[in-house]
């Protein structure tokens, strides 16, 4: 039997093999979730009643199903829809992003809706009084402020999504936890050490980011007089 590697080597191996996938899953699903979430939020706030219902229904459904179940639906049940991506690996990867993004969109839309609603109605009125169309006023005045207001909540969503990407290992996407688990099968005696190493990497990519963005945004928002703990 070969000599088990040190935990530091394992940390390096998990990071080089799994971290890129984890970060790609996180950023891509946040990005897709961002656009879908904004769309849903705008439908909820400005849309006619039918669109409001669609948006509301979407949120209720995706917030009411566990992520693991959504992953099974997309990553196993509907996997053939993603075979256009080429290899099985790619199909699983895309399916995982779909699941993560569509779930995240439901939560992001709540963040954005709250932010849009908390922009003073006087801002819209002032924009309209200058002759801006409702679209211009939304895009140039309300949304820029809403996005700034939503950043603290949005960093929280980042923290949720990066941690939830670990669930994706259940459908066989080789991200960090998947590699970590593979090591535990090879070196069962090191199980706790390997899992703790994995935990450290997740933590290192979660806490400093939320702390940094949270603090710098609070400062920025204070300059603009937009909440942020004045």
């Amino acid at each position: 039997m070969q000599e088990p590697p040190g935990l530091f080597d394992i940390l390096i191996l998990i990071m080089t093999r799994g971290l890129p996938t984890t970060l790609a899953l996180t950023l891509l699903s946040l990005l897709v979730g961002f656009f879908v979430g904004i769309g849903l939020a705008l439908m909820r706030v400005y849309g006619p009643i039918e669109l409001q219902w669609i948006s509301l229904g979407y949120e209720k459904i995706f917030r009411g199903i566990p992520l693991l179940v959504i992953l099974f639906i997309f990553g196993i049940g509907l996997l053939r829809l993603f075979l256009w991506a080429g290899s099985l690996f790619n199909a699983l990867f895309v399916a995982a992003i779909f699941a993560l993004a569509l779930r995240s969109a439901a939560y992001q839309s709540e963040i954005f809706r709250g932010a849009i609603m908390s922009v003073d109605p006087g801002q819209m009125m002032a924009a309209r009084s200058l002759g801006m169309t409702e679209f211009q006023a939304t895009r140039r005045i309300v949304l820029p402020q809403a996005l700034r207001l939503s950043l603290p909540g949005w960093t929280n969503e980042y923290a949720v999504v990066i941690k939830d990407t670990s669930l994706v290992s259940a459908i066989g996407v080789p991200e960090m936890l998947y590699h970590g688990q593979a090591f535990t099968w090879t070196y069962p005696a090191l199980f706790l050490g390997i899992i703790l190493v994995t935990a450290v990497i997740y933590f290192a990519f979660t806490y400093p980011v939320t702390k940094y963005v949270g603090e710098s945004m609070t400062l920025k928002l204070r300059t603009l007089g937009l909440g942020g703990g004045r």
């Binding site: 003073d120 006087g122 801002q123 002032a126 009084s129």
Partner: peptide, 13 residues
Amino acid sequence: IGFVFQNFNLFAH
């Protein structure tokens, strides 16, 4: 038609 508001309503951002 210009409009000046009681609460100013300047664009905060």
